[in-house]
């Protein structure tokens, strides 16, 4: 069955922009399932539910889980992959612990079930999968010291994780726009250009890792 695995970051971007509803319609076009691992559900629902901050978003996300638009996959053992992932980048002789268990669990699940895509708005995990040497460049610039890559562990990481396409909430919103899910919002005062810009900037402002340059490029190609 076709599957997209979601990291908590994509769901947070959608929820805080009141865009969770697009998942319901996109699921029909996808003709498959949208899945979050157990640890992501804990981050999205269980933890914020017990605090006054973002309790409402937790309740809304839980509603989408209860209705089956998001499926929760039982916890899988990721200790080995987590250990390897956090022993790839080194500052001097010290390994940099850069990833969290929930992020690794989503990636491990995507690999395990051979998912069609992994949706992640968070930047570090995306860099680790798509271009770890770019991540090294970032770490070197910010930490102002040489960062070495343990190639053996990087190889192990790559062999344990599939080369999976990565998408973000911004791509999901654009697909929803292209499918006409926002057509009610277009009127004499709100042009398509306004809507696309509003979607991309709204998601960026709530934490989706997309640059202003990327937004400009997408805007030019979409309109």
């Amino acid at each position: 069955m076709k599957t997209i695995i979601f990291d908590s970051s994509t769901i947070i971007s959608l929820a805080t922009n009141d865009l969770l509803w697009i998942l319901k319609d996109l699921k029909k076009y996808f003709d498959g399932r949208f899945v979050i691992p157990e640890s992501v559900k804990i981050e999205l629902v269980d933890n914020p539910f017990n605090s006054k901050y973002y309790k409402l978003e937790a309740i809304m996300i839980n509603n989408y889980i209860n209705k089956g638009y998001l499926e929760v996959y039982k916890a899988i053992d990721v200790e080995n992959l987590l250990d390897i992932s956090n022993k790839i980048c080194y500052a001097d002789d010290k390994n940099l612990v850069i990833l969290h268990k929930a992020e690794i669990e989503a990636l491990a699940l995507a690999s395990k079930i051979n998912a069609d895509a992994y949706s992640v708005d968070e930047r570090t995990m995306r860099l680790m999968i798509e271009n770890p040497f770019r991540l090294r460049k970032l770490l070197e610039r910010k930490l102002e010291r040489k960062i070495s890559i343990n190639k053996e562990n990087l190889k192990k990481f790559e062999s344990m994780t599939v080369k999976i396409p990565i998408i973000r909430s911004t791509e999901l919103a654009l697909i929803a726009y292209e499918k006409g899910l926002f057509k009610d919002l277009i009127n004499d005062n709100v042009k398509e250009k306004d809507l696309v810009e509003a979607l991309l900037w709204g998601l960026k402002m709530r934490g989706c890792s997309i640059s202003d340059k990327e937004i400009e490029e997408i805007g030019r190609s979409e309109l």
């Binding site: 947070i12 973002y54 930047r123 860099l127 973000r168 960026k204 989706c208 890792s209």
Partner: peptide, 28 residues
């Protein structure tokens, strides 16, 4: 919480740094 952190990060220029872009956005 991640919610709080994402909300804050979104208002910074963190995602605009050069290293952030890995794949052509049109290709993605």
């Amino acid at each position: 919480s991640r919610f709080e952190l994402m909300d804050y990060i979104g208002k910074t220029g963190i995602s605009d740094v050069q290293e952030n872009q890995t794949i052509d956005p049109i290709k993605r």
